[in-house]
Design a protein around this nucleic acid. Structure first.
Lengths: 138, 138
DNA sequence: GTCAACAGTTCCAAATGTAAACTGTTTTGC
DNA sequence: GCAAAACAGTTTACATTTGGAACTGTTGAC
């Protein structure tokens, strides 16, 4: 995504980075399923290809949304962690989930999660962000 | 976008429809700039191609996000209007804009708009939704 | 020492997106 | 009443992105 920015509109700038089919699904898996490893992302229901996954993880790393580091306890394993900018995408996931829950035929169990998050307002979001900071700190 | 759904996750269902570079920019133009005509969307800074625009408008219409009708006062003109599902995308635009405003180098004047909307909580959103309902009703 | 786990990479085909020119009406300005 | 501009797209040729499958090279488990 080395494309020159097409405008300085905040919505456009967000979309230039996360406006695609896969990026927010990766973030979703980190936020709601606690995934941290390449192989885990590969196993999601939507079936991202390893090629696309590798490219997205690299871009997200370049743009400061997540960090990549070696697992000290396991030489082969790589750990991906959300940065503060990545954790800050939680409200986007919440509103996106709430919309899908209301206007598409979504799984009820999953819908409850984002619905509660969106309905809980700032307080619910901050609580979950705090938990994510703990989980993704080194 | 006649793709079979890959999962029933509400976030995935939202992304399958609006997770791309252009769709939310069209909605943004309708919501914040009051655009309603093909030629107006074409003139945005980001420069969508007429082919992509036509395809997206068709999909959004098929999926019930907007409606298409002839302008009674002007035989050539077509009017696109947001449905309730389309208006309901406002919180997504607000959080997306707030994120871009905080984490990218966004235009300050534009950033203020989404920032206030996101900071104003449910009340600010509902107020703007009410205005959109009036503007996009027949 | 063998086998599975791990994070990718490589290659090719298919799908999608872009730019630019073009269509066929209708309305506007004179 | 006629020419030019406005309107919503379509078409075509090309470039870029994506998807699927097979493959690499290393490390850890048994």
């Amino acid at each position: 995504m080395a494309t020159r920015e097409k405008s300085d509109c905040p919505i456009n700038l967000s979309l230039e980075l996360i406006g695609d089919r896969w990026t927010l699904l990766i973030i979703r898996d980190m936020v709601f399923a606690g995934k941290k490893h390449f192989r885990e992302f590969l196993q999601s229901d939507e079936g991202i290809s390893s090629r696309t996954l590798a490219e997205r993880l690299q871009t997200l790393q370049d743009e400061g949304i997540l960090t990549r580091s070696d697992d000290p306890t396991h030489g082969l394993r790589t750990v991906y962690r959300l940065t503060e900018a990545g954790i800050d995408l939680l409200p986007v996931l919440a509103t996106l989930g709430a919309w899908g829950s209301r206007h598409r035929k979504a799984d009820e169990r999953l819908a409850r999660i984002t619905d509660q998050l969106a309905a809980g307002g700032e307080a619910a979001l901050e609580k979950m962000k705090a938990a994510l900071r703990t989980e993704h700190s080194v």
